[in-house]
Each structure stands twice: as C-alpha cells, then as structure tokens.
C-alpha cells in the first residue's frame, strides 16, 4: 500500500493574527500544522499498521520551516517525507493542491489522506481539490478508515451523531475529521532523533492554479470582545432571547 498524507502548514490562530494590507502578515505569524492533519497522519499510520505499506507525508514548504513538521510526522510513524519548496507563505489552497497533486502523482498512491479542513481554507480545502486533479473519488468528514482488498471502508460523519458507511474502490482521497484513535504523542527525544537521521525529499512546485479570489480586505470581525448585552427585566430579557432564537430558526 502506498499511503500518502497531504498536509498544510498554516498560520497559528493561538496568537492574534496581524494583518498587512489585505491579507495576514505572514512574516510575523507562527506557522503550525493544521490540527486536522494531525488526525489524518494518525489515520494513515493506523491503516499502515493494519495492512502494511509505507506512509509518505507531503507538504508545501511555505516558510522554510516544514522540516520540523515532517520530522514529527516520521516520529509518529510515517516512513517518508516530501516537501514542495515554494517559499510562498501566502500560497492558497488551490495553488497548494495543484503542487501537491503533481508531487503525489509520482508516488502512485493507493490512498491519499488530508485533513478535512483548515482554518485558512478561504478557497476550499486541498483534499477535494487533490481528488479532482488526480481524478479520484473524495469523501470528507471521515472518522475511521479500514482497507482490505483494494477497497476502503470509511465512516463519514454528518451532524447530530448521524453518519454513513461507504465502501470505495481505491485509489481515493479521504478528508479526515478524526482518526479512529486519538493521535499518538511523539516524544520530542524521538523527533530529535529523526531530525538527525531522516532525509526529506524536495520537489520543485510544478503546475499552476489559482483560487481566482481577490482579497479586498482582511480584518478582525467587528463585534468581538464583549457580548451584546440584552437589557431589561427578566421577562424582557426572556422575550428578547426567544425572539433572537426564533430569528435564527433555533426556537
């Protein structure tokens, strides 16, 4: 089994995000691994552990700091790492999906994992786009994957605890919401060991795609920091809450 995980290095939302012009000030933010990618790496490793194969993690190196992330992935059980050297911190999902697709093609994957979404997916997620480029089926919102005889059985989650099970003849792209088990912890001593021994393949970005979106403005949402207060007697408050809920279709 050739198992591939496509990951995204994204600005950390743990900090307040500074803006420069019409976009995030990429020079002054920290980049972290998309949280759902942690799930998809775990799910990929779980599949490998169940049926064998190799896990290759592929990501676009936006700010020349992807190595840490790739080492972490290897410490968690991935076998190989590939980075697309773009050095373009603002590359959108469309660009990244195109470059990743080109890099993944050569790996002739049986199954590709991606995080179901990322907080900066303003133009959509890379998972379904990679599926489109590679002409593979895509299912997102997945919370468990089992593979046998060239077929994957995946559970997809809808809202409210309802889900559905699908069987898909491989290859396919899976958008992982949650791995079947919580992502394992990679002790830093192991990560450091990997950093000294592992090699990371590098690939030039190839192919061209764009989101076709022009950023006109980027700013913190106006009404944050404090709740909009509802005044009046308890009865009036109750009435206003009920009204509010009704207007949102929640009561």
């Amino acid at each position: 089994m050739n198992i591939v995980v496509a990951i995204k290095h994204i600005p950390s939302i743990a900090d307040d995000l500074p803006v420069s012009g019409n976009n995030v000030d990429f020079d002054s933010v920290d980049f972290v691994l998309n949280e759902f990618d942690e799930q998809s790496i775990e799910q990929a490793v779980l599949v490998k552990e169940a049926v064998g194969g190799t896990v290759t993690v592929v990501g676009v190196d936006l700010i020349e700091e992807l190595d840490n992330i790739l080492h972490l992935a290897i410490a968690k059980g991935a076998d190989k790492a590939v980075k697309v050297t773009a050095d373009e911190p603002g590359a959108d999902s469309h660009m990244q999906a195109k470059w990743l697709s080109e890099a993944i093609k050569g790996l002739s994957p049986d199954i590709v994992f991606a995080g179901v979404q990322a907080s900066n997916d303003l133009d959509g997620q890379i998972g379904p786009m990679i599926a489109a480029h590679l002409d593979m089926p895509y299912i997102g919102g997945v919370s468990s994957v089992e593979v046998a005889d060239g077929t994957a059985t995946v559970n997809k989650e809808f809202a409210g605890g309802v889900g559905a099970k699908y069987s898909v003849s491989l290859p396919m792209v899976v958008g992982v919401q949650a791995a079947a088990k919580p992502p394992r912890y990679a002790p830093i001593s192991k990560v450091r060991q990997v950093a000294q021994t592992a090699t990371i393949d590098t690939v030039e970005p190839s192919g061209d795609a764009s989101s076709g979106l022009t950023f006109k403005k980027m700013a913190p949402p106006v009404a944050t920091g404090h709740a909009e207060m509802i005044d009046g007697s308890p009865k009036e408050v109750a009435a206003k809450i009920v009204e509010l809920l009704k207007s949102k279709g929640l009561a």
Partner: peptide, 9 residues
C-alpha cells in the same frame, strides 16, 4: 477565516 479571528472580503 482563521477560526473566526479574521473576516476576509
């Protein structure tokens, strides 16, 4: 975007 930290137009 960005977990609700920014609004993009």
């Amino acid at each position: 975007a960005y977990g609700g930290k920014l609004m993009a137009e």
